[in-house]
Amino acid sequence: SKRYEADFHTIEVSSLLSSSSPCVLSPKASKTKSSLHVMHAHGTCSHLSSGKNAIPDRVEILKRDQARVDSFHAKLSKTTKTATRNADRVRQRKSADLPAKDGSTIGSGNYIVTVGIGTPKKDLSLIFDTGSDLTWTQCEPCVRTCYSQKEPIFNPSSSSSYYNVSCSSAVCGALSSATGNSGSCSSSTCVYGIQYGDQSFSVGFLAREKLTLTSSDIFDGFYFGCGENNQGLFNGVAGLLGLGRDQLSFPSQTASRYNKVFSYCLPSSAATTGHLTFGSAGLSRSVKFTPLSSVTDGTSFYGLDIVGISVAGQKLTIPSTVFSSAGALIDSGTVITRLPPKAYSALKSAFQASMSRYPTAPAVSILDTCYDLTGYRTVAIPKVGFLFSGGVDVELDATGILYALKISQVCLGFASNSDDSS
């Protein structure tokens, strides 16, 4: 019995789908000085969750998630190929090594935070994204098109702290690494453009503005994109907070205050909030660190080295080269974890063996291991752990193992890449 409890989670089946419970706020985000509440863009806690910005269904979320993953693979593939070429040729400038156009797709399993922009400040809800760098918001007068957003669109002419950036400035030149596109000029003003893998885009003026995280954490002269032409599946949010590693990202621009340290906790339900906290104050003493992987050198992604996976307390037999040849990264905007085929196959087999008592259900989209839990009050699922380099063992929460479309179709929340080298 003790062994079973150690190796399995017992969860209420009714908890697998979103409820309409009242919102419970994160105590850490409420108490910590440099901390913001993190919430599902369309959960109970979000003021965006109504009207025509309705939450996309879960099949649509999975479809958009694959587009984001495809664009990451394309970006890394180009970077790797360029790096290989450069080994045999004259070293080129860093900007030339970067992909010309593609960013990542926004996806739709998005988490948002609210920040203040301008003077007087306007509160805007932004997707927070560790997989991209440029922070931007839609701006009036929207010279081409703006998509529908819940909050009023930011109007720079109403802010006393807004300044356009000259196209001769160094920061305009930094756009190529932050967005994949060089800055351009319009009446001496720097114009940025960022296009995402699903053809969503934002184009507008690169600007400096006051950004207010909290009443005690205010940044004058923060560089951001004031988007005058924006299209895509942004689901009613006002823009994006770029948390990647590029020099224009939020962590880099605020490095003197926070030393490029930030942390977050993603809530397990739409009726609770988590936190996004900048700086190292208040970090849990139980945090275990793994080194950033060299697989993402030359990019602004955060690379990880996965070295093993366990299911129900048993380490899976996966050759170490399966992980090392492909590498890994961590991303706040990708919904479903992708694994090399051999690793996914081992995970799937072990999971199926532990779940053999439950009836199976049809596969859906990228998820191929599903169960019909109709009629069950609770379900026992095997615990899943990831081992990262440096001996960092991370046991996933019960909510991080399954992805429920409906009670009759609850799936293992992992997917396979198309080949072991992608």
Binding site: F72, P251, N259, L266, H275, T334, T337, I401, G413
Partner: peptide, 30 residues
């Protein structure tokens, strides 16, 4: 590449230390 996605990150405290070149994890972060 493999990608560690946000379903699997739920309730973990995930720490990014850009200057120290490391990423950290702790359970029960929310």
């Amino acid at each position: 590449v493999a990608i560690f996605g946000n379903v699997q990150q739920q309730t973990l405290e995930v720490v990014y230390d850009g200057r120290g070149g490391r990423v950290g994890f702790a359970p029960g972060g929310c």
